[in-house]
Design a protein around this nucleic acid. Structure first.
Lengths: 124, 124
DNA sequence: CTACGGGTTTGAGTGCGCTCCAGGTCAAGC
DNA sequence: GCTTGACCTGGAGCGCACTCAAACCCGTAG
């Protein structure tokens, strides 16, 4: 698979794919005769996982660390696991905070709703 | 209240407070004789709300829009409400996505756990 | 009186995560 | 043979949200 195809399938730009390779998030792709990257479809799984990490707010630095451990092989399992467990906790906290914010939003919207049906504005 | 006190109470830096005033997120604070900002404690409520918006991923641009509407007074209630309702939907989607990511993380961690108790590494 | 710990402004600098550009190579189609 | 389009590299540039620097002004304590 060429980088353009991968970009389409992964939902990232070719720029981003090359950038991720540069910084070590993606393994250096094999090249064809003309020096062009030629990807195995399996890379999509890894990219999908990276996306989960990014979605959950993990900075690239930490993804680099994880990717580095992964490159170093099986022995690093416990370390990778610890990294993910720590991250899981931050994501849990994040979800809780968002839910609290949602309640506040709901209340605020409700206050606009009642101010709307009644006559006068009340909410800040 | 002076800007330093407010910064401590609001959990923002004085730099950030001045920056927020510059870009219109905070109303221009009243000044004392020496030209220094002198805040009313009520501003904390507004800052708290801004923080909720920021926590939930609203870009400053949109907060500026909301703050602008607020400055324009009661007539803008419906518009502000619409803005918040739209934002609420994005936050809901965000929470759902995070929860999906959490399941993936859980699964991944579990796979490391079993690979840990068993002999050989399995997980990517 | 002077030193100090705040405060003021404008404008520049920072870190992150891309995003794009210049200048080039290569393979396929007309 | 020539054009087109996708790809290559190294490095510059961008948008966001701060963050800090320089040069200055106050008010109070010692």
């Amino acid at each position: 698979m060429k980088i353009g195809d991968l970009a389409r399938r992964a939902g990232l730009s070719v720029h981003t794919l090359r950038y991720y390779e540069r910084i070590g998030l993606l393994p250096r792709a094999e090249r064809d005769g003309g020096g062009r990257r030629d990807y195995d479809a399996a890379i999509l799984t890894w990219i999908g996982f990276l996306r989960r990490l990014k979605t959950t707010g993990m900075p690239l630095r930490e993804m680099q660390r994880y990717a580095g451990l992964r490159r170093q092989g099986d022995g690093t399992g416990p370390e990778r696991r610890a990294l993910l467990e720590a991250h899981r906790e931050t994501v849990r906290a994040q979800v809780e905070e968002l839910q609290a914010c949602l309640s506040v939003l709901d209340a605020k919207i409700e206050s606009y709703r009642t101010a709307d049906t009644a006559g006068k504005g009340t909410a800040p």
